[in-house]
Design a protein around this nucleic acid. Structure first.
Lengths: 210, 210
DNA sequence: GTCTATACGAAGATAGAC
DNA sequence: GTCTATCTTCGTATAGAC
């Protein structure tokens, strides 16, 4: 099979074509990986979806693992810092973004996170980066880490529940409404030792530090 | 390979042996399915772990799919009902049980829920059964379903984060502490239209029904 | 650079000996 | 009832023609 080309009208730069082809393969790979997970996605299927030869996929990416590695690479360089008492809202806002966007790139990662070690590691890293700020706001380090873990767990649970498990009340819900309902939860998880401002004190009894 | 037997001292009832062997296979299957997921678990590996011949596994269970179906079957007949204002605590209590127990049977189901449709359906059903009570407590049906979905998502997120993803602050945490920190979250999610008793009113503005 | 053909291995499933 | 041997299919990966 040959890549569709307009016979030979005028010379398209090879590098451009090549890059375009690679991108199409990657796009197809993301699509299939995100839909079926790593194991059930075959090189052949990716090649077919990208309208190229299977061997070409191997030629470009070397192996299925490397293709997967490229497909799940998602640049996450947008950790916004800010006042501590707004941390919960910042995290919620980021969750809201993901709920609006249907993050196709991230779904490939999430779909395989339970069965593919590399994907699991990627998720752990992404979560640690995003929710890591929660740790610092703790009184004792251990509880801070736990709270960060719970924020991570909630975030993952919502995205997985919506896009992957497609839970009934969640899959068609309005992202705005989701984040609004979750706001008290995030605040309760994040704002513990922090002085309450417009939010009421989340807990009645204090916990000992350490 | 033969199943280890004491030469032939006295006749062990065949049905008993058979049942015992089946149980050993199922146990090995659960172990492997929960560790590696459906796709990466092979009949051969299950047979080896159970110290039986691969063909015997097929003989007993018919196919890999059916074996999986048996392995993930977990009787969940313990939906406790009770006063509505304690619903959040009941749900938390059940979550606490799962966090204490390391539910080996359920992990097989959870591990494959993102890549195996049958497992996904099983999880959806289990969650709906457990968290379905939340729906009824809503003012408008849609928001109730959403809240039930969010409780489900949180629950799944915590268990997945602890046992499967093994998130740092979560994997070694004390279950008691986890549920205590989550309590305000569950209350905020569940107790919305409900008259607050010992818990403060979770929201200030009312929502229109329908 | 692109594609055809194929090697190589592994897995699920089956047939039939004992 | 239990196990050996094998069939079939399908996956990744490679070698080499054009």
């Amino acid at each position: 099979m040959k890549t569709v080309e307009p016979a030979s009208e005028f010379p398209v730069p090879r590098d451009e074509r090549r890059q375009h082809t690679q991108e199409r393969i990657l796009c197809a790979a993301r699509e299939l990986f995100s839909r079926s997970g790593y194991d059930r996605t075959t090189i052949r299927a990716v090649a077919a979806a990208a309208k190229v030869d299977p061997a070409l996929v191997m030629h470009y990416f070397g192996s299925k693992e490397e293709l997967f590695g490229e497909a799940i690479r998602v640049d996450m360089e947008d950790v916004v810092v800010g006042p501590e008492e707004e941390l919960a809202d910042r995290l919620l806002s980021k969750l809201g973004d993901k709920l609006e966007a249907e993050p196709d790139a991230q779904l490939a990662l999430l779909r395989s996170m339970l069965t593919h070690p590399q994907a699991a590691e990627g998720v752990r890293r992404a979560l640690a980066r995003e929710c890591g700020q929660v740790v610092g706001s703790a009184i004792g380090g251990a509880e801070g880490a736990l709270r960060a873990g719970l924020v991570s767990a909630t975030t993952i649970g919502v995205i997985v529940g919506r896009y992957l498990l497609q839970l009934d009340g969640l899959k068609d819900a309005d992202p705005k409404e989701i984040t609004e309902i979750l706001r008290p939860c995030f605040r309760a998880l994040v704002d513990h030792g922090v002085e309450p401002k417009k939010t009421r004190a989340p807990r009645s009894k204090r916990r000992r530090a350490g």
